[in-house]
Design a protein around this nucleic acid. Structure first.
Length: 106
DNA sequence: ATTGTGACCCTTC
DNA sequence: TGAAGGGCCACAA
């Protein structure tokens, strides 16, 4: 990693291109942006995201489909609500595999 | 320079 | 399923 600003831009760009109703894992997003192995950096980037950001941060979940926040936390509820509004099935704080970008149905 | 800390991920058992 | 262990990489102290 030489330029963090460049990294952020690449991540934002990929995230903006992600269609509603689909989700990606941190690692997937990093790889799509051209930075395989940078999952944790994606997490750090989203964490520092301004509250007024228009980026669909809620479409990023863990590789196993679970939401990255603690049960009942404000952020957990926010993400779950947003996802459900887009038609993403969230059960027990976990989204189904079918919603992942990689597992897109033809 | 070293250490601890994450909105992480994968393999094993 | 779920826990444990190791790998990962930027950043702050």
């Amino acid at each position: 990693m030489t330029n963090m600003a460049q990294f952020k831009f690449a991540i934002y760009q990929q995230l903006r291109a992600l269609p509603g109703g689909r989700v990606v894992a941190y690692g997937q997003l990093a790889a799509l942006a051209g930075y395989p192995g940078y999952a944790r950096q994606v997490g750090a980037t989203l964490r520092n995201l301004p509250t007024d950001s228009d980026l669909p941060w809620h479409r990023v979940v863990r590789a196993d489909g679970t939401l990255p926040f603690a049960w009942g936390s404000e952020e957990f509820n926010e993400q779950q609500t947003r996802l459900k509004h887009e038609g993403v099935n969230v059960q027990n704080g976990k989204v189904n595999r079918q919603h992942f970008l990689t597992n897109a149905v033809i």
